[in-house]
């Protein structure tokens, strides 16, 4: 039994002889379209040995888990990690990205700031959502990274349509205690596309869910600082990373967005992007 899909042009092939693993591969399979191509194929196998579900890559055991949920989650993490390996010159940023009214935008902020929930709301209102966690930055241009969106239980209460989709999905143990669901725009009958280019704007989110939302221009130096704090890799040439971030913020609008109630915040964001 195997499952093949493509991420950033790389072919990912997962093979398993375990039916229960095979049934879950669809949960983590990426169905995003992108215009990239690569000769690289990433082949992984999941086998059972000595009571463990072992994840193998090039004949080497990368991880072993006793629990099926943990094994699938680990497989998902390893796929993302291995797919990103050839992208070593690109700076990886913790950010979501979408397109509204033809305008490509990026949203950054600390974990829990509401990036995924806000972008899902926009997606249901007609935006295109590209990613909710990672973008790659190279030569001042963004490349969205099509990782499955992590939908946490807090989001379900805010977005009934998302809750309805997740009700038919398997819940996985989250990384910080709470459960999460893997989802993507195709679960909502929408296209899922990766996108590359220069964003029209970058928004830095600060949560204040009990207050009114507020949007204001952000100094570019401040945005550069916020983005440097959201880099997902601290290795490599720091000076080059800084230059990349500065090139990005110099070329787009920068806003601070205080995230209040979901509907009002989404309306404000759409108005700014319109």
């Amino acid at each position: 039994m195997n499952r093949t899909f493509s991420i950033l042009g790389q072919q990912v092939v997962v093979e398993t002889d375990q039916p229960e693993v095979g049934e879950r591969l669809d949960d983590i399979a990426v169905r995003a379209d992108d215009a990239l191509s690569s000769d690289r194929t990433l082949a992984l196998r999941v086998v059972q040995a000595d009571g463990f579900l072992c994840i193998l890559h090039e004949g080497r055991i990368l991880a072993q888990e006793t629990d099926l949920d943990a094994a699938i989650r680990m497989l998902h993490l390893l796929i993302n990690q291995l797919v990103l390996e050839p992208q070593s010159e690109a700076l990886k940023l913790h950010a979501a990205a979408g397109t509204w009214a033809g305008r490509f935008f990026m949203v950054t902020g600390d974990r829990g700031a509401g990036k995924t929930t806000l972008l899902l709301k926009l997606m249901l209102d007609g935006a295109e959502m590209h990613c909710d966690e990672t973008v790659l930055l190279r030569d001042g241009l963004l490349q969205t990274f099509p990782r499955k969106f992590y939908i946490k239980t807090g989001t379900l209460a805010c977005l009934p349509r998302v809750a309805a989709v997740c009700a038919a999905k398997h819940a996985y143990p989250g990384f910080y205690g709470k459960q999460l669901y893997f989802a993507d725009p195709t679960d909502f009958g929408l296209p899922w596309r990766s996108r590359a280019g220069r964003p029209w704007a970058v928004f830095h989110l600060t949560p204040a869910f009990d207050q009114a939302p507020l949007i204001k221009p952000c100094a570019k130096v401040e945005m550069a600082k916020q983005l440097m704090m959201q880099t997902l890799q601290l290795t490599g040439d720091l000076g080059r990373h800084v230059a990349q971030v500065c090139r990005l913020v110099a070329s787009c609008k920068c806003y601070s967005l205080r995230v209040g109630g979901l509907d009002a915040t989404a309306a404000l964001l759409k108005k700014t992007l319109a």
Partner: peptide, 12 residues
């Protein structure tokens, strides 16, 4: 390494 921006700069 000075990265000039319209409202300041970022130095490495």
């Amino acid at each position: 390494q000075i990265n000039r921006l319209e409202d300041g700069c970022v130095i490495y």
